[in-house]
Amino acid sequence: MNARTRSIERKAAGISILVALQALACAFFLADLVGDVVADGIGLHLVIEGMAAIALLVAVVLGSFQVRSLIAAARRDEAAVAAAQGAMSDLIALRFAEWQLTAAEADVALFALKGCDIAEIAALRGSAAGTVRAQLTRVYAKAGVDSQSGLIALFLEELIALPDRGPSAPLG
């Protein structure tokens, strides 16, 4: 579960508690209103109290809908992130196969895509920096790029789909 989902769930829990407290207050006010109307009849004070109770009831209903909306949004976001992660993983595997990377080259390329520099990749793989540098050079050549940023941009370019704007539409 990512930080955004946890944040939404905390907000939903907070709003749920608030809605529950509002529902209790609304039940109290409505019961008090009914008791006062039975005992004293309808007066200006009770009409105002009734309007306040109705406003509180509306807030309870709207709060409930807001909680449902937050939870649904969190679930949609989580599903979208999972789909994007799967798509990225599939795209990486496809490109690595197309480029005919060796297992070591694929491993080094994956670390490069994650933003690791040569020293970090060497430390993670337990190999020499020169070996990693040579492997990255072969990866870049097979991918048709000349740098780590070029490799990353290659994947981002395939994942970012701009809307069709037509031949003369500006990007901005």
Score class of each variant (00 low, 15 high):
E78V: 12
C116A: 13
G115R: 00
A87E: 13
V81E: 15
A79W: 06
D117R: 10
D117I: 05
L91T: 12
A104F: 09
V81D: 11
G126V: 03
A79I: 08
L91K: 10
V132P: 01
A87H: 06
S69N: 11
D117A: 04
D77E: 15
L110C: 07
L113W: 02
A128Y: 14
L124S: 05
A72N: 11
L124P: 00
S89T: 12
R75I: 08
A72H: 10
V132H: 00
V81F: 09
D77A: 14
T131D: 06
V108G: 00
A129C: 12
A123W: 00
W99V: 04
A87V: 02
A103S: 15
A97W: 05
A109T: 05
A74I: 03
A128I: 08
S64N: 10
C116S: 11
L113A: 04
V132C: 01
A104R: 10
S64C: 12
S89Q: 13
T131Y: 14
F65C: 13
A112E: 04
E120M: 00
S89Y: 11
D77H: 10
L124K: 00
F111C: 13
A79H: 08
Q100S: 15
L101C: 05
F111R: 15
A74G: 14
C116V: 06
Q100Y: 13
A73C: 04
F65Q: 11
F65I: 07
L70I: 02
E98R: 15
A112G: 01
V132L: 00
L113D: 04
A119C: 03
Q66A: 15
S89I: 07
D117Q: 10
A103R: 10
A84T: 09
V108E: 01
G126A: 03
E120I: 00
I92A: 06
A106N: 04
I118K: 05
L91V: 10
A109I: 08
A79G: 06
K114Q: 15
G86W: 03
I92Y: 04
A82C: 02
A73N: 09
F65V: 11
A123G: 01
A109S: 05
A119F: 05
G126C: 03
A83E: 13
L101D: 04
D90Y: 09
R95E: 14
V67G: 02
A123K: 01
I118S: 07
I121E: 01
F111V: 05
R75V: 11
L113V: 05
I92N: 00
A128F: 09
L94A: 14
A122I: 01
G63D: 03
A84P: 01
R75W: 11
A82D: 08
G63W: 01
A122Y: 02
T102C: 04
E78D: 13
I121V: 08
F96Y: 09
F96D: 04
Q66R: 14
